[in-house]
Design a protein around this nucleic acid. Structure first.
Lengths: 238, 238
DNA sequence: TTAAAAATAGAGCGATCGTTCGTTTTTTAT
DNA sequence: ATAAAAAACGAACGATCGCTCTATTTTTAA
């Protein structure tokens, strides 16, 4: 696939701005991807209309759901917030549950790409940078999506609930592997260190009410996270 | 109050078993406390019956809710799981929402006591031990309660949602204060370190599917957490 | 043992849920 | 401009929700 070559040119980044420019899962592009992946269940045929509606639907979901929860959000709430009628909603989505499943799908794609990009690096220092910054920056841009999946996994069917949990396990496993490459002789529990690191990254999108500082400081947060990891595993930065 | 004297004798602990023995918010005692605090809204008068029903109701809630979410859990589900009729349920609770509020109240009491016990220590090393072990051990014993509040805060009325968030902020603030006492001259961001520490402690009750090892290792987890904190702030343990 | 009191049962209430579908409006293509 | 096609509308449906209320059973106290 040419996609891995495409990703490669986007997988070197040291700042948020740099990352954001190469990040394709935002704006209309994102909703085109969702439309393309759900054509069979979406009754609207024309991308133009589907994208417009999907955008409204997800924006409304991410506006209502964090306050009262996805289950408590009725499709009438959604209708009011989007400005679409009940019929209008159901022309763009197969069911209420389908909204949650689509969120899970998108987050899964992004997470897989982060791990993939990181694993492609031979240098473990670069690999760690890539996974930490990639996860932190992606979840900053797509904060609503990551937050939704974190808190609404219960709203998914059993199969996608399992898939959702595996996303996080893969992050931890990948990071632990990198840490072992960085310090092959260490007898530290790198799974524990990776768990700590992932928790710290999740903090920002899980508890946005705690981190209400301006967006620019996500770069500082990345630096702090990396410094904490290096210190924990006694790695001297050159 | 004699309660602070009472707490004092329970506030020295270095192992989980030790802590558990002095922990009063478990078993029938816990439900007596809940009954006592909600007498006005509970229609059942006799403690014996109320305690038995409350025990059933909370056990059932913690059995159903983690799988499908509190909102999706119907009172008919609860009726089936508890073996109580609809009328039986409503003789022991004021409403469905009241279940969530009672969980929040209990967790708030426990959290306040942890912070209180910790702040009572003059030695910052002891204070850190007390808050880390206290939070970790309490949330291990009351895993279902802490987990429920974490994920179902959205199901609470606005006022208790705010209170629930403040619980965590108080933990972080208290811990940061202790860390500053430990290292008064450090220019590290102790709020950041405390955030990391609290995240790490929460890991265990937030993601039980990740930490399925036997209960005894909660002591090792406490040691690991403390070691990580000390290392992060460059504190030499004597 | 028995009558009053307390607790439990479960059918039933109005409200609201997710979803459907016949109709109307908008868009597309000639 | 007009007819066909696509999209949007919104009333209506059956199911289920949280909750109530009266009848029944269990417990209590003499």
């Amino acid at each position: 696939m040419s996609s891995s070559a495409l990703q490669l040119q986007h997988s070197n980044y040291n700042t948020f701005i740099e990352f954001e420019n190469g990040f394709e899962y935002q704006g209309e592009r994102l909703y085109s991807i969702i439309f393309e992946r759900n054509k069979e269940t979406i009754k609207v045929n024309k991308e133009k209309f589907a994208v417009r509606n999907l955008q409204k639907i997800f924006n409304a979901t991410f506006s209502i759901s964090p306050k009262i929860g996805f289950q408590a959000m009725s499709l009438r709430d959604l209708s009011a917030e989007t400005g679409l009628s009940m019929g209008g909603l159901y022309s763009s989505i197969a069911s209420k549950e389908a909204i949650a499943i689509m969120v899970k799908d998108v987050v899964a794609i992004v997470c897989d790409e982060i791990v993939e990009n990181s694993m492609a690096k031979d240098d473990p220092v670069e690999a760690l940078q890539t996974i930490v910054r990639g996860y932190l920056y992606s979840s900053t841009i797509m904060q609503s999506w990551f937050n939704f999946l974190y808190f609404e996994t219960k709203s998914l069917p059993d199969l996608e609930q399992e898939a959702s949990k595996n996303l996080e396990l893969e992050q931890v496993t990948a990071m632990a592997k990198i840490l072992r490459n960085l310090k092959p002789d260490s007898d530290l529990d790198m799974e524990f260190v990776a768990t700590m690191a992932v928790s710290l990254i999740q903090e920002r999108y899980v508890k946005p009410w705690k981190h209400h500082q301006p967006k620019t400081t996500v770069d500082q947060y990345a630096v702090d996270c990396l410094a904490l990891i290096y210190k924990t595993i006694d790695y001297q930065i050159d």
